[in-house]
Amino acid sequence: MTAQDVELPIVSNEDVVRVRQLVRAVAAEAGMSLVDQTKIVTAASELARNTFVHGGGGSARVESVVNARGRAGVRLVVTDNGPGIPDIDKALTEGWTSGSGLGLGLPGARRLADEFELDTKAGEGTTVTVTKWIR
């Protein structure tokens, strides 16, 4: 089975683990260093948990990508149809949390990835896209 461009549902705790394993497989196949694999897998774990806990479930898509300059990387797109994030600045602030967590989820994922994109609309849902390029 090729691990490229696969979509997974996130509707349970087990799915969070599955997303991690999928990202690991795609990153390893793309030839990413162990440290960078660990970073993107950890970012995936944070985002998938957010989707399950705060977004009421959703899905994750993992793909290997190549940018305009021929650099390869791994991209993860996590989407939910939850309540959306009312205050993006706040959500991206270290230590701020809407629930009982450490508030490291979004800002942490952002720091672990090379590229981070957040698209959210109140009442419609949230999509977070993170990309890690191979050094």
Binding site: V35, Q37, T38, K39, E46, L102, L104, G108, R111, L112
Partner: peptide
């Protein structure tokens, strides 16, 4: 704790 895990935790801010 593995090196890669430690580096990632520091980057994560933990």
């Amino acid at each position: 704790m593995r090196p890669a895990v430690a580096i990632t935790l520091v980057e994560l801010g933990l």
